[in-house]
Computed example of a mutant assay.
Amino acid sequence: MKMFLGAALLGVAAWLGFARRAEAAVDGVTLPPSDPTEASPALVASGPSAYAAIARQALGEMGNPFDLPLIMGLMQTESSFNPRAVSSAGAMGLMQVMPFVAVDRGYDPNAMFDPEQNIRCGIAHLVWTRNYLMPLGKGDLSSVLSAYNGGVGNVSRGWFNAGYVSKVIAYRDNWAGRVA
């Protein structure tokens, strides 16, 4: 609760312009300046193509559990390819990873603004989510995407975010002809 409130206050402060270039910490996780141009300029300049290369490599190392267009669609939905994105709930980076998820997946929550670490952690979490839901009979892509967005507990209880899933799938379809 403390982390959620801290992140929410930080989000409101950033929205109001009070935290535009200031660093803040939420439960020990240092949040960087909110200006996306302050993130590794070379990586930001190359944008989605650099992120696709990172995701392609990570997917290959993990046995290609999902296709690259899906990961690109997920990134576009979650952060619009802003590596410094912070949600009002405290999710961070390209794939909007929560700090506790980073820890649970074995990643440093302070590294979630590093595109490579964030993408790898996000993919690992997507794999974990699918593996968690499969024995419950909810391992289909729509349920997995809903759980990535709203949590496995909510999906286990029947919650489904059709709008979110539709958006990710539409972006995935758009990326399908552009990345392999």
Rank of each mutant, 00 (worst) to 15 (best):
V179S: 12
G11D: 11
N110W: 08
S46W: 00
A25W: 01
M98R: 08
R178L: 11
A25V: 14
S156Y: 01
D35I: 09
T30G: 09
K138P: 01
S34D: 08
D67I: 07
W128A: 09
G137M: 08
P48Q: 14
A53Y: 02
L9I: 01
V127S: 05
L5H: 02
Y51N: 10
A85H: 04
A124M: 05
C121S: 13
A50P: 00
I119Q: 03
S87V: 11
G106S: 07
N118L: 05
Q96M: 15
L68W: 03
A111Y: 04
A39K: 05
M95N: 02
G150F: 00
V165Q: 03
L94P: 09
V26S: 01
T30R: 15
P135N: 06
Y164E: 02
V152H: 00
P115E: 03
L31W: 13
L43V: 13
G47C: 05
R172Q: 12
L145T: 10
A45F: 08
N110M: 02
V179H: 07
A55F: 15
I123C: 04
R21E: 13
W128I: 00
F81E: 09
A147D: 04
F81D: 05
P48W: 12
D27G: 06
G11I: 00
V144G: 11
P83H: 10
F18Q: 11
D173M: 01
F100M: 13
G158H: 08
W159H: 11
M98V: 07
I119P: 07
L5S: 05
I123W: 10
P99S: 01
A85C: 05
P115G: 03
K167M: 04
G139T: 10
G47M: 12
M72K: 12
P33Q: 13
C121Y: 10
R20C: 07
R130K: 14
A13Q: 13
M112S: 08
H125K: 01
A8W: 11
G6V: 01
L5Q: 04
F18C: 06
P115H: 06
L10S: 13
N131V: 00
K167C: 00
V168W: 02
S146F: 01
F113M: 06
P109Q: 05
N174D: 14
D35W: 12
Q96C: 12
V155G: 02
C121N: 06
M75L: 09
R130S: 03
G151P: 06
N82M: 09
V29S: 04
V103F: 06
V86K: 00
R20N: 07
S49T: 15
G151F: 01
L133G: 04
A53C: 05
S156H: 05
A13K: 12
W15N: 10
D35C: 12
A102I: 15
N149H: 14
G153L: 09
L94V: 13
V97M: 15
S146N: 05
G6P: 01
A58N: 10
V179D: 09
D114F: 07
N154H: 07
M98P: 03
A102Y: 11
A53M: 09
F66T: 08
L9W: 13
A13E: 14
F81Y: 15
S79R: 08
V127P: 03
I54D: 11
T129K: 02
